[in-house]
């Protein structure tokens, strides 16, 4: 890995970390537990479009471990990992099909982030009825936040791609 790539990865990790911190400081509550914008996913989305998949995945995991140890606990880290890994896999697949633009990829990512967390919650709490109670709500939430992040992401990615030519 070249120094430039290394620095770029470091920048994005720091950015994701700061975004998570901002969300932790200023929670935008809409009355639904667990619903948030997911600003850090913006960074993951950008990294997906400007870096190799491997590095983007590393970024995603490092962010979760950092944020998990600083702002939350092991239990919520477990949920975060489940959500992040599933949404990352889905986003990579969605991107490779070339069927969707960056916004569509982000929407899928947002939804499957929630789906991953629910699967983990069902596994941990052993209450399958959770799926039916929560899933429709979280799909809509994921769709909304995914759209916002996607539109932002497409604007930012266009600009960053010019700078991050070393990838």
């Amino acid at each position: 890995m070249s120094i430039k790539k290394n620095v770029y990865l470091g920048f994005l990790i720091a950015l994701a970390f700061v975004f998570s911190y901002i969300e932790f400081l200023v929670p935008i509550s809409v009355g639904i537990p667990g619903a948030k914008l997911g600003l850090a996913n913006l960074v993951i989305l950008i990294s997906l479009y400007t870096m190799s998949y491997k590095d983007a995945f590393v970024l995603s995991l490092i962010r979760i471990v950092l944020v998990g140890f600083t702002f939350s606990n092991m239990a919520s880290m477990l949920y975060s990992i489940a959500g992040a890994v599933l949404s990352f896999i889905v986003m990579v697949i969605a991107k490779k099909t070339n069927f969707l633009s960056i916004t569509g990829v982000s929407v899928l990512g947002g939804i499957f982030h929630n789906v991953g967390q629910i699967i983990m919650a069902v596994w941990v709490l052993k209450t399958p009825s959770l799926v039916f109670y929560y899933l429709p709500l979280l799909i809509v939430i994921g769709c909304l936040s995914g759209t916002v992040i996607g539109v932002l992401g497409s604007i930012v990615t266009k600009r960053i791609q010019k700078v991050a030519k070393f990838y």
Binding site: L100, S101, G104
Partner: peptide, 19 residues
């Protein structure tokens, strides 16, 4: 692909509604 995005979002919202 922009059009596909919109189709995707609509389909997803319908699925959520059906659920």
């Amino acid at each position: 692909s922009k059009r596909n995005d919109i189709i995707l979002i609509i389909v997803i919202l319908i699925v959520a509604l059906v659920f």
